[in-house]
């Protein structure tokens, strides 16, 4: 178990480093930061000055190492536009994104797991068809469009919910549904097919032959086995959600990390974009690591050799 844990941890660290390198390079390649910083009317001398000032004239590898060594100590630089430390800018906004992420994931899990289980224990009935319909719609509909429809119907027409901002819990309802619904189909289908497979397996027949109660067969033996692959997919779905939150935060004017990323990309605010990419990749890696641990906890075949 300890070896498994260390292996996964080592892998997580390596992935984080690789992502930070690749993202650093990609952002430099996407345009000359000095030109962007100096402004449209700048002369070539001014651009040259900015380039030297910010150290963009040095080799990429040196720039990266300098940035990385400061990032490790928690210093992500300063935004040249806002004249604020990047850590402070992110710190101000991370709460909104985290709230949205946790709410959306909970919504997705609470909707998809029960529906998937119901669909599996009553295959080819109306409840199965309903679950299928819900998942097909969720799969086919872009989340920003669904968000806009909700704004029009729930916000503008019936005035049930606020349409922008993050002041009250009510502000999070529509963004949560829009973002969470997007992750629902994959999880639900996986729960359904997993449950169907487990329910027809030999050890469920054993459990029946032992005369166990139906609830015990369903939850103790079937769901426990069916949920193992779902946990692994959850981490991937969360990754999609992090990307999706950039869109959703923009649609609902939630000032979170996603919104900050969108604005910063628009004005080539490199330190901020760089920091957000790093942060998202760390979140993703940490979640994957946690899902690996959870998987090991759930599945003794991983945990016990």
């Amino acid at each position: 178990m300890l070896i498994y844990f260390l292996k996964r941890l080592g892998l997580a660290v390596l992935v984080t480093i690789a992502v930070s390198m690749i993202s650093f390079m990609m952002i430099r390649v996407s345009g000359d930061p000095a030109i962007a910083l100096a402004g449209e009317a700048a002369t070539s001398e001014e651009i040259e000055f900015v380039r030297e000032q910010y150290g963009f004239d040095r080799p990429l590898i040196i720039q990266y190492l300098e940035w990385a060594s400061r990032a490790i100590r928690g210093d992500l630089g300063e935004s040249p536009y806002m004249n604020l430390p990047v850590t402070q800018m992110i710190g101000n906004r991370i709460g909104v994104t985290m709230t949205l992420g946790v709410c959306a994931l909970s919504f997705a899990v609470l909707l998809s797991v029960p529906l998937g289980v119901l669909a599996a224990i009553r295959p080819n009935t109306w409840i199965d068809r309903l679950a299928l319909t819900i998942s097909v719609i969720g799969q086919a509909m872009p989340s920003f469009w669904f968000g806009l429809i909700m704004i029009i119907v729930l916000g503008v027409k019936f005035r049930l919910l606020p349409i922008s901002g993050a002041e009250t819990p009510a502000h999070f309802i529509m963004p949560t549904i829009a973002l969470g619904y997007y992750a629902t189909p994959a999880i639900m289908r996986l729960v359904r097919s997993g449950m169907l497979e487990v329910l027809s397996s030999d050890h469920i027949r054993t459990a029946k032959a032992k005369g166990l109660r139906w609830g015990k067969i369903l939850f103790k033996h079937a769901l426990r086995n069916a949920i193992i692959p779902v946990v692994a997919v959850l981490a991937v779905q969360l990754g999609f959600m992090l990307g999706g939150s950039i869109v959703i935060e923009t649609v609902f004017a939630l000032h979170g990390i996603g919104h900050l990323a969108w604005v910063s990309i628009g004005r080539s605010d490199l330190p901020v974009v760089q920091a957000i990419v790093l942060l998202l990749s760390i979140i993703y890696v940490v979640l994957t690591f946690l899902s690996d641990l959870l998987n090991a906890f759930l599945d003794p075949r991983i945990r016990v050799k």
Binding site: S201, D202, H203, R205, T206, A207, A209, K220, H221, R224, N225, L298, D299, P300, R301
Partner: peptide, 16 residues
């Protein structure tokens, strides 16, 4: 009580 053909798969892998 019933004993089945496939001992490899007749036990739940998740429990002791």
């Amino acid at each position: 009580a019933m004993i089945f053909q496939e001992p490899m798969t007749s036990l739940d892998p998740c429990y002791t």
